[in-house]
């Protein structure tokens, strides 16, 4: 007898998981996002034990667990590394292609943070170059209140 499994049509279900999430930024995250939203300022936190200034801010030092203190950071800094993105993804891609992701160490911080880069010329990006934040006009309390970073333009 022929095995019924041979030649069985295979059904595929197009489904999804769509659970709505509301992630708490916490007191530390809230203060950071408020500064971005209300004052267009970056804040980091410094571990009094290790002396490291973390950005994004940490309530406690990831290394030693000590409670950190607030530090103001510049809105410009150094591009540590980057990648120019050439592929579009319908749900994810945040800016027109090509844009870049970069790890940016702001002046005053010891760690880099991840953000977007735009307004750069083809081949312009280099590790070690200076970049500056471009803030959104409408800000809502998220890291996207910074639209992106761009190569630092000398004051006109």
């Amino acid at each position: 007898m022929e095995d019924w499994r041979t030649g069985q049509e295979i059904l595929v279900m197009e489904g999804r998981i769509k659970v709505p999430y509301r992630w708490a930024a916490g007191e530390t995250g809230t203060r950071y996002l408020q500064a971005l939203r209300d004052e267009m300022r970056f804040l980091g936190t410094r571990c009094p034990q290790c002396g490291v200034v973390y950005h994004p801010p940490r309530r406690h030092c990831p290394d030693c667990g000590t409670e950190c203190e607030w530090r103001e950071l510049a809105s410009r800094g150094v591009l540590v590394t980057y990648t120019v993105v050439r592929r579009h993804h319908s749900q994810l891609t945040p800016l027109d292609i090509p844009f870049a992701y970069g790890i940016i160490r702001l002046e005053g911080a010891d760690t880099g943070f991840l953000h977007l880069l735009h307004e750069f010329a083809e081949g312009e990006l280099r590790a070690g170059m200076e970049v500056e934040a471009v803030f959104a006009t409408e800000r809502e309390g998220s890291v996207r209140d910074v639209r992106y970073f761009r190569p630092l333009r000398e004051a006109v």
Partner: peptide, 14 residues
């Protein structure tokens, strides 16, 4: 989800 996810970063880009 607070600091990075909305930027759209994922395995290949990271």
């Amino acid at each position: 989800p607070v600091y990075e996810r909305s930027l759209g970063i994922e395995a290949v880009t990271s």
